[in-house]
């Protein structure tokens, strides 16, 4: 390009217009916006949920509390915040596998899982999870035992679901901290299973 002045692409112009409007009118503060971005890019993520799952695996009382009042049980570990206002935890068993979707947009339990991955936001996932959950699980490399029932849960702005995956076999002697490492983001959405322990994790 030969000209030496700056360019903002049309989208950047629109976002800057919104931001300057909202900041100038005092509806939002610029440093509060930066703090929010930092929080969701760097501080809140699926590791929070993994700690909830590992605690539930080792502590039957906590597990029962999580089923009865997920918000309180999760908050007791320090994970509170917006978009987790009414949490419901769905426990996977040998017979029943839960899968979470938001067909409307991408409602998701931010305090425990962070912000949703791209595929969760895609039209493909939002439609296919409901119509063809088994096919979706196959795409994710998940094969369930013969005859297992798949239940699909549609998150909304009011209710956010999180899956409690099954504890893998052979992990009876592992510490809670080591168990956290086996809990993947996908296993808490239902598009994955908890990882099998490896030699080094034991």
């Amino acid at each position: 390009m030969s000209d030496d002045h700056s360019h903002l692409d049309p989208i950047a112009v629109r976002v800057r217009a919104l931001e300057s409007l909202l900041v100038d009118k005092g509806y939002v503060k610029a440093d509060a916006l930066d703090a929010l971005v930092d929080t969701y890019e760097n501080r809140v993520g699926p590791r929070n949920g993994a700690q909830v799952v590992a605690r539930a695996w080792v502590d039957p009382e906590y597990r029962e509390w999580l089923q009865r009042d997920a918000n309180a049980a999760i908050a007791s570990l320090g994970f509170v915040g917006r978009q987790g206002e009414h949490m419901v935890v769905l426990e996977n068993t040998a017979d029943t596998h839960h899968l979470v979707v938001c067909t409307l947009c991408s409602c998701y339990p931010w305090p425990v899982l962070g912000l949703p991955p791209g595929w969760y936001k895609s039209a493909a996932y939002r439609s296919r999870a409901v119509i063809d959950p088994k096919g979706v699980l196959t795409d994710f490399g998940v094969s369930l035992p013969e005859g297992a029932d798949i239940r699909v849960w549609d998150s909304t702005a009011e209710v956010r679901y999180m899956v409690l995956p099954m504890r893998p076999a052979g992990t009876e002697d592992m510490s809670e901290d080591a168990l956290v490492e086996l809990v993947t983001r996908d296993s808490m959405i239902g598009t994955g299973l908890a990882l099998e322990p490896t030699g080094s994790a034991l």
Binding site: L18, L22, V28, L33, D34, L36, R82, L115
Partner: peptide
């Protein structure tokens, strides 16, 4: 990220 933050704020 900016858009997300504005909406959330």
């Amino acid at each position: 990220a900016q858009l997300f933050a504005m909406t959330t704020a």
